[in-house]
């Protein structure tokens, strides 16, 4: 039995560099298998474009297994596309139908300048991490398995925050282009753990200050980030972040 393939119409954002104006271009993607991932569909489309003498579409990707956070596309208006809790690389073409028209755009945010086409510079996230996304404590050798100084549920909570892969979909989805879900996830996963707690007050202040410097918007609780996050990071962590800041406010530089 021959495999059923699909033909699609793509509207893709093309932009030569950070300064150039961009626009949507229309392409036909032919003979797409439903078993391909969205990125494989773009690979095939790019080969077709090259044959036509058109410059291939530039897009970010790395692991292609949903863990690195590099792939970043707004598909039909939704970061990472229509499938819940997956990244673009884990989105499969069986979610689409033959003849569909698909709009593909980059993350749009002042803090994430477009480098080319669908590729953006997410260095802003790195600088938030550099501000205090670490702990300066050394904890000795590896502890015994299942040896943990906080209860399991607290540990699980920190791990839920630590699921963040830094993809930036939260910023892309936010009507204010705020990076608060990412910042909250990073603050929470450290501040909730015994190794991170001692520096908690400094961390929350430093990471929020770094976030603000990058030109992200402010959170007004639309909760679009949570709906778009491929890792299911909850906005409850933003509330936690705010609480950590309230606790940190009266503390001076010596704390």
């Amino acid at each position: 039995m021959s495999e059923k393939t699909m033909n699609l119409t793509l509207y893709v954002w093309r932009q030569a560099n950070a300064k150039a104006p961009g626009k949507m271009e229309r392409y036909e993607a032919k003979g797409i298998s439903p078993d391909m991932s969205f990125l494989e569909m773009l690979d095939v489309t790019n080969e077709q474009l090259i044959k036509q003498g058109i410059e291939p579409i530039v897009f970010d990707h790395d692991c292609r297994e949903g863990i690195c956070g590099m792939c970043s596309q707004v598909i039909n208006g939704v970061p990472h596309g229509p499938e819940e809790l997956v990244t673009v690389c884990q989105l499969h073409m069986r979610r689409f139908n033959d003849g569909d028209t698909i709009f593909i755009e980059p993350w749009r945010s002042k803090a994430f300048p477009i480098e080319k086409d669908l590729m953006v510079d997410r260095g802003a996230f790195d600088r938030i991490m550099q501000a205090y996304g670490y702990t300066s404590i050394t904890c000795g050798g590896a502890p015994d398995a299942n040896d943990h100084p906080i209860p399991k549920w607290q540990l699980d909570r920190a791990m839920d925050a630590a699921e963040c892969i830094g993809c930036g979909a939260c910023v892309a989805a936010c009507p204010n282009a705020s990076g608060m879900l990412f910042t909250a996830a990073k603050v929470a996963h450290l501040n909730m753990l015994p190794q991170g707690k001692p520096e908690g007050a400094r961390r929350v202040k430093a990471m929020i200050a770094a976030h603000d410097l990058e030109g992200f918007g402010n959170c007004t609780n639309h909760y679009e980030c949570e709906a778009a996050c491929p890792k299911g990071v909850k906005t409850a962590f933003i509330s936690y972040l705010n609480k950590e800041l309230i606790k940190a406010l009266p503390k001076g530089a010596q704390d």
Binding site: R108, K110, P175, G217
Partner: peptide
């Protein structure tokens, strides 16, 4: 005003999934 400035180029297509009319 800051929030508007944080996205200088808007999406051609943007679907909001959960936010409300009131919030917007």
């Amino acid at each position: 005003l800051e929030n508007r400035a944080a996205r200088p180029v808007d999406y051609q297509q943007k679907k909001n999934l959960v936010t409300t009319f009131a919030a917007k």
